[in-house]
Computed example of a mutant assay.
Amino acid sequence: MTQKVTILNPDTTAIAKQGMPQFFGISGATAGAQGISMNLTAFGPGGKAKAHYHRGFETAIYGMTGRIALYHGPRLEELSLIVPGTFCFIPAGIPHVAFNLSDSEPATALSARNDPAEQENVVLTPELDGLRDADAAALKTGA
Results as ranks from 00 to 15, higher is better:
Gly35Phe: 14
Ala136Ile: 09
Gly142Asp: 02
Ile82Thr: 04
Pro21Gly: 04
Pro10Ser: 09
Ala51His: 00
Gly28Gln: 10
Glu77Leu: 05
Ser104Asp: 14
Gly19Asp: 13
Leu139Glu: 01
Ala29Gln: 09
Tyr53Arg: 01
Ala51Arg: 00
Pro84Phe: 09
Ala14Asn: 06
Leu128Pro: 06
Ala60Met: 04
Thr30His: 10
Gly35Ile: 11
His96Ile: 06
Leu81Trp: 12
Gly142Pro: 04
Ala42Cys: 11
Leu131Val: 06
Thr141Ser: 13
Asp135Pro: 01
Leu40Arg: 03
His72Tyr: 13
Glu127Ser: 04
Ile82Asp: 02
Pro95Arg: 02
Leu79Arg: 10
Pro95Trp: 09
Gly73Ala: 11
Asp133His: 11
Ala109Phe: 03
Thr141Leu: 07
Arg75Phe: 09
Gly44His: 13
Thr141Ile: 14
Asp11Met: 07
Ser37Lys: 05
Thr30Asp: 03
Thr13Asp: 12
Glu77Met: 05
Gly93Arg: 02
Thr59Ser: 13
Leu128Asn: 05
Asp135Arg: 00
Leu81Gly: 05
Gly32Gln: 08
Asp115Asn: 07
Thr13Gly: 13
Gly66Trp: 00
Met38Glu: 05
Glu127Gly: 04
Thr41Asn: 14
Ala92Asp: 12
Met1Thr: 14
Gln22Gly: 13
Phe89Val: 14
Val122Phe: 08
Asp133Met: 14
Leu110Tyr: 02
Gly73Asn: 04
Gly44Pro: 15
Met64Ile: 11
Pro84Cys: 07
Asp133Ala: 11
Leu124Lys: 05
Thr141Arg: 10
Gly85Asn: 07
Asp11Gly: 10
Cys88Arg: 15
Gly32Arg: 05
Leu8Gly: 00
Gln3Trp: 12
Arg113Glu: 09
Ile90Cys: 10
Pro116Tyr: 02
Ala136Leu: 03
Gly66Ser: 01
Thr65Leu: 01
Thr12Val: 10
Phe99Val: 03
Leu70Lys: 05
Gln34Tyr: 14
Gly19Ile: 09
Leu8Ser: 00
Val83His: 07
Ala112Thr: 11
Phe87Asp: 14
Ala33Pro: 09
Pro45Val: 14
Gly35Gln: 11
Gly32Asn: 12
Asp115Ile: 02
Leu131Ser: 02
Leu101Thr: 07
Gly93Leu: 04
Pro74Tyr: 06
Thr59Asp: 09
Ala92Cys: 06
Asp115Glu: 06
Asp129Glu: 13
Gly130Gln: 00
Glu58Val: 09
Tyr62Glu: 08
His96Leu: 08
Ala14Tyr: 05
Gly130Pro: 00
Thr108Glu: 15
Gly63Cys: 00
Lys4Arg: 08
Asn100Asp: 09
Ala29Glu: 12
His52Arg: 06
Leu131Phe: 01
Ala134Gly: 08
Ala51Gln: 00
Pro116Asn: 12
